[in-house]
Design a protein around this nucleic acid. Structure first.
Lengths: 341, 341
DNA sequence: CTGTTAGCGCCTTCAT
DNA sequence: ATGAAGGCGCTAACAG
């Protein structure tokens, strides 16, 4: 049932249609220079036999692969999955296939950059939502193809992303504008990725400074990404002498975990403690979590668009650096600072 | 910077190493029949020039692609993303590449099965977590490659999945064992997919019947997948005369939405209403939601394993139908039926 | 417009 | 163990 008679080749189709392979090729590829009648005949024979061109052979001869490599960590997380979905959608519509490479953990990542499994397999690659290190960047040049970044700050590549600093400011400034001064931050890092200066962290410090609020190191905790870790981090925060009246979490997942801890401690949200996240994860709506919305789909589509531009013209597109806006979404997890008892 | 001198071919490497193309090929492919010294020399030249075999040319000549097609809806959702991640991980380790096809919405899906973009591009395909219809199954035959299903009931293909009926029973039986009799069900369907009889639904009806509980149509509501829809469905449930003491939701996301509605209504979980979901989504832990755990990673890995088996031996593997066990995870969203006031 | 003919880069007998 | 040659399926450049 699997293997049947040998697959037909373009030569067979040509013969069956009574034309030369060249003409058959042109007809099948919708290339110019074929009489309408001839083309019609060829096409008829082709789909009569359910024949399709072999993309590999075609690509080999034409010098392209018709594939784009997607390098992404943590495909199982909302942010990355959404990004990938958007990119795939645009690329697919353009007739391009997507080769997926997961660099979720350190080993995968090292493996990828060391062996570059995508070599000679793609016409371009998109690094999705993670910062590429200098050494890695050098390896990537070996691919000899265009590279664009989706959802991450990468001065070195054409990219589409948000401004993490601004997003952070929108979150923290919101808390400040509500009168909060004892504002804590749960800083989230990815244990599987190299540490980098985060715009979301910088936003916190500068926002406080701009508001004339003295920084309090005790109000800043760092934890690994994820809800459970957020919960643990919040517990650390609450175990200290000075209790914050508001919490700024680097992401909604982390915020979700923090919310659980807050409630289990017997405190109310937002009456006792306000909390704000970043991302506008679908879960945020269910949790009534105030957050900063970032357009993930748009970032993905924009990045895919860059790929198409790069492939079309060999000249770089005009907008190589696309920064999409974020905005605050106020729900029920934040309120004015409670009166001091 | 992108295009440099022509890429080296295996002929170049052969010449540089002072051997014939045949020998170079064998050496590069780790094929037998090459003197250790010779092989070493070829390999040296190769990586000295950062040369790698062209997979496309190689595949063309050898008659394989080295790629596996993944057909998956909703890559942005936890369940699907996790499944894909697990599959990719196993396949990658086996040196296989993954071509990703998203069939999230009806259009994509029709498009996929109509044009079969994966034709002549893959050695096998994995349909991830969605039921293939008969007509689609017929189209898939045209691919002429092995097909396996990951996470879905498919008698027709080798597959790895859970037993939805049993999972449902574990959830509903749990509620029944706690003394609940007014048990509601929020049935979730995917508006983008054809409706099918669901094991999770069957479980509900039979569990009640087995417990001698009279079915009450008012206690069953159907909604589209997703948290917000779950919230809306719960609202419908609460707007009726007979209020359930427990709710069985088809998935954790739906349950999460329902929980919000319950709380907003002023009712407490689990004191006033117990609720149980299915999946053990990471969010469930943060919500203290009792649920039925299903091993998504394992399903993905098992499915990928089937692919490898199928590719290796052409004889079907022994276990073509792998069913992984699920288990109840009791948290704080369920408790004994409240005393009737 | 159409047929013919080189490759594209590699694998695989077949001799040696 | 190794070299030579044909072919994988298709495109592109060239004559008509």
């Amino acid at each position: 049932m699997a293997a049947s008679q040998r697959n037909l080749t373009i030569a067979d189709i040509a013969r069956l249609a009574g034309v030369g392979v060249g003409t058959a090729s042109r007809a099948l590829n919708n290339a110019p220079g074929v009489a309408a009648a001839t083309r019609k005949r060829v096409l008829a024979v082709a789909d009569q036999h359910a024949y399709v061109i072999s993309p590999d052979a075609s690509g080999l001869a034409a010098g392209r692969t018709g594939r784009i490599g997607l390098v992404v960590p943590h495909i199982d997380r909302w942010f990355f999955g959404t990004m990938v979905g958007a990119i795939v959608s645009v690329l697919r519509a353009a007739g391009l296939d997507v080769l997926l490479y997961d660099v979720g953990d350190l080993d995968d990542r090292r493996e990828f950059f060391e062996h570059l499994p995508a070599r000679k397999k793609v016409d371009a690659v998109v690094v999705v939502a993670f910062p590429v290190e200098e050494a890695e960047r050098q390896r990537l040049t070996l691919l000899g193809v265009h590279i664009v970044a989706a959802g991450g700050q990468h001065a070195v590549y054409p990219h589409a992303c948000i401004d993490d600093y601004l997003a952070g400011r929108q979150a923290v400034d919101h808390l400040i504008s509500l009168g909060h001064r004892a504002i804590a931050m749960i800083e989230a890092v990815d244990p599987e990725q190299p540490v980098r200066p985060s715009g979301r962290t910088a936003a916190y410090h500068r926002a406080l400074a701009d508001a004339g609020i003295a920084p309090d190191p005790h109000l800043v905790v760092t934890t690994n990404w994820g809800g459970v870790n957020g919960a643990e981090a919040m517990a650390r925060l609450l175990s200290q002498s000075r209790r914050p009246t508001a919490v700024y979490a680097h992401s909604d997942e982390v915020a979700a975990g923090a919310m659980r801890t807050i409630r289990r401690t017997g405190l109310r949200i937002p009456e006792d403690i306000s909390i704000v996240g970043i991302d506008d994860h679908p879960m945020a709506e269910l949790l009534d979590l105030t957050t900063v919305h970032q357009p993930v789909d748009e970032q993905g589509r924009a990045a895919a668009g860059l790929v198409l531009d790069l492939l079309r013209n060999d000249t770089p597109p005009v907008d190589q650096a696309i920064t999409l806006p974020t905005h605050l979404v106020v729900r029920r997890s934040t309120t004015s600072v409670p009166p001091i008892p």
